[in-house]
């Protein structure tokens, strides 16, 4: 067991972080907005944490936990504000045009970070201090955060705001006619997603020991999109399962050596062809829920 956790501790936390990143993309998608901006906010949050912990507050030994929380908060707030500024004009675009605009946004952030001195140019920032003794301990922070965000997503799906998101996703014109303000809700969904991505970036910078412009790229955006598409885009479980599965898959396939990426790609293609709605569908969850209720009820009477 010891060996298992020391070998895969990093991977487990990485899976949770990627699931959270998947969730950050799921929020705008709830309102029908295909936004690929998550890695941009993720990179921004990471840079904020990296700069604070290496340049602003210089500490010896273990990095204080409360400062990490502060960085997460700052990363989320900065991403939220930026999302508001970018979202209002960008969300006038629809579908593929919005996706293109968000790709451009990620590219702009990347080029800016390459050219600034404070972000360390192309080499990036390294020697980021550790708030935890080993990679697995990050789970103490990341797992509750994942549960919190997932709980928030679950509550959101059933709330008035969540229903407004769904209405816009299904038919924006009809939603508008029913008195839902599409711009308001679309920007709201975009900002929520950005705040999650920014906060996750702040943790990831510590987690990876280093941060650079390669973290927020078009490639990363496509990866995160794949989490949601392969996992299923109609329930938050999809983003979580997709993030877990696609992060773990290359490592599970490691014994295959050179073949592993071929098998990995093959599984993705098969998934996309035979499960076009993703691994997790709301209908299945509903069926699962009913069975659970049926199982629990007799127990309740005892």
């Amino acid at each position: 067991m010891d060996t298992f956790f020391s070998t895969y501790g990093f991977l487990m936390v990485q899976m949770m972080l990627q699931a959270l990143l998947g969730l950050s993309l799921y929020f705008p998608m709830m309102a029908g907005q295909l936004s690929l901006a998550s890695p941009g906010f993720y990179a921004l949050g990471g840079y904020i944490a990296a700069v604070i912990s290496t340049k602003v507050v210089v500490t010896q030994g273990m990095y204080p936990f409360h400062l990490l929380l502060l960085e997460i908060l700052l990363g989320a707030m900065a991403s939220g504000v930026l999302a508001l500024l970018v979202g209002i004009p960008a969300l006038r675009l629809k579908g593929i045009y919005l996706a293109l605009a968000t790709i451009a946004f990620v590219e702009i952030l990347r080029v800016v970070s390459l050219n600034l001195d404070i972000t360390g140019g192309a080499v990036g920032i390294f020697g980021i201090p550790q708030p935890f003794a080993n990679p697995l301990s990050y789970a103490l922070l990341v797992l509750p955060l994942l549960i919190l965000v997932a709980w928030f997503a679950a509550r959101l799906e059933r709330s008035r705001v969540g229903r407004a998101f769904t209405a816009i996703r299904e038919d924006e014109l009809a939603a508008d006619a029913m008195g839902i303000n599409p711009t308001y809700y679309k920007v709201l969904a975009f900002v929520i997603g950005a705040m999650v991505a920014g906060g996750i970036g702040a943790i990831s910078a510590h987690f990876l020991n280093t941060w650079n412009a390669r973290q927020g790229t078009f490639d990363a955006a496509i990866n995160v999109l794949a989490y949601v598409l392969i996992g299923g885009s109609r329930t938050f479980w999809g983003a979580i399962v997709g993030g877990f599965a696609l992060t773990a898959l290359p490592e599970i396939l490691r014994p295959l050596g050179d073949l592993r990426l071929i098998v990995n790609g093959l599984l993705l293609v098969i998934g996309a062809i035979y499960l076009p709605q993703g691994l997790i569908r709301p209908a299945w969850l509903a069926a699962l829920g009913k069975r659970k209720v049926a199982l629990v009820q007799p127990k309740g009477e005892l």
Partner: peptide, 16 residues
């Protein structure tokens, strides 16, 4: 080519 991949590979080398 990425950082997470390098960490995973190193963990496998060290522990496995």
């Amino acid at each position: 080519g990425d950082e997470a991949g390098a960490i995973n590979a190193f963990q496998t080398q060290i522990n496995k």
